[in-house]
Amino acid sequence: MRVLHTADFHAGRTLRGYDRTPEIREALTEIAGLARSEKVDAVLVAGDLFDTVNPPADAEATIFAFFLSLRDAGIPSIVIAGNHDSASRLGGLSGLLGWVGVQVVAQPTADPRQMLRFVETKGGEKLVVGALPYLSERRLVKAADVLGADVGRWRQKYREGMNFFLRKLAEGFEPGAVNMLMLHATLDGAVASGSDRGMQFDLTNSYTVSPLQLPAAAQYAALGHVHKPQQLGASPLACYPGSIIQLDFGEGGEKKQVNLVEVEAGRPARVHAIPLVSGKELRTVRADLDTLDARLSALSGFDGLLKVVVRAPSGTALPGLKDRVLRQFPNALGVELDPVKDEATVQAGSREGLSLEQLYERFHQEKRGELSPALRGVFKESDLAVREAAGEGA
């Protein structure tokens, strides 16, 4: 059996006012083409079809066109909601999407059996997918924190809740079938892409799942949520395919992909990364004022999107800098200043908040070495005498 695993489309994304949906449409057309050329039996989409809970019409049209293309090729798909999606919106569309071969799991249910999805291949094989959409505990933990509860217990409760669903989903696996998990979540050990849209925060919060919690009965865990392609865990094999284009400058330089999973009942899965070529390349250029023009001239053949960071002395006014950059590179989406503080300002800032004794100790270390206990005592006595004298004269 051959299954194509993808995730994190983020249709409707804009980057500093620049609409990325045309690039996402191009990437989805490429993915649908790969599904046909690789003769896959099913496509798994592990969440975040949209970038917002209320996506624009062209974003919806882009997603629906993708699924219609799969329908025309006779390829069924299974989809879960991610944290950027509106679960209720996807749930409301599930009946219509079902007519074109899309099985949607939008929200966790009290009965995990309702989150099992099945595909019968043309060759007579059966695919069972335990599909777990995004399950957020953040609001609950925040409320508990405000109320003074033991937040550590709530964080552990999240893992216990995930354990419940994962265990129940695994109970629906069938001998003689290919059994997979699909979830939109953060696994321990996941590496962020450096995204400037807050993904780093998501990876450092406490709402994570250990790869050890994934039931070994699954032959593959199709993950979504993290935009950097990576493998986590080996039993079962768990993978993030990553986002389908470089969504922001934090993802600049990353190679995007989908995962082709080859698997048969009772055997370990084999995963092949298939590179994607769609989407503009994103790049950040850092330069000083005197090297800016040369750096931009060197990018004359670059047709991607650019962010320019200019180093300049703190407090420097640079009127017309953005126009200067745009004249040379119209595709620059951002021009930022990286203020460089002079040495006196840096030293003054480093002294802020230090006591007189701490300042003296730092001065002594810089000029003469470690401050001895005897000399420290003399300084304290002198400081106290000065303070008392000042108080008497007040």
Rank of each mutant, 00 (worst) to 15 (best):
D303H: 07
M162V: 06
R71A: 14
F9H: 11
G172K: 03
L260Q: 10
A27S: 13
M199I: 09
V141W: 03
F164S: 01
G301T: 07
S77G: 07
W99N: 09
M182Y: 10
L181F: 07
L127S: 11
R139S: 13
E174W: 00
A57G: 07
V45W: 03
V271M: 08
V43S: 05
C239I: 10
L232F: 05
S314Q: 14
K255I: 12
G74E: 04
S88T: 11
K142R: 13
R311M: 03
V310M: 02
F302P: 04
V261S: 06
K367P: 01
G198Y: 02
D51N: 12
P313T: 11
L375W: 10
L318I: 11
S210N: 07
Q365D: 09
A294S: 09
A81R: 08
L15Y: 04
A317K: 11
I63C: 14
Q365R: 13
P275E: 15
V378M: 05
L140N: 03
H364K: 15
D323K: 14
G33K: 04
D323M: 12
A348S: 15
K280A: 14
L321T: 06
A42H: 05
E370D: 12
Y134M: 06
A177I: 00
Q358K: 13
V191T: 13
D58Q: 11
V261F: 05
R267K: 15
V104W: 05
R25F: 04
H184A: 03
A273G: 08
R167Y: 01
G349C: 08
L375G: 03
S136M: 06
R2Y: 08
Q358F: 08
K322W: 03
L359H: 05
N259D: 12
G253I: 05
D188C: 14
D8Q: 07
L375I: 13
T316D: 02
K367M: 13
H5E: 00
D19F: 01
L68N: 14
V105P: 07
A217H: 08
R20L: 15
R13Q: 14
F9A: 05
S206K: 09
L28H: 03
R267F: 09
I75D: 08
V104C: 10
L214Y: 12
P22V: 06
L44F: 04
F164C: 00
S243H: 04
G252N: 10
T204F: 03
A35D: 00
V191E: 12
P211K: 07
G12E: 00
R138Y: 02
F64G: 00
L212P: 01
P339R: 06
T29E: 09
E366R: 15
N83G: 02
K126E: 14
I31T: 04
R283C: 01
G279Y: 00
G315P: 06
P236G: 02
D41F: 00
D150S: 12
Q219S: 12
P133H: 10
P175R: 07
L96G: 04
G391C: 06
I244A: 09
G266M: 10
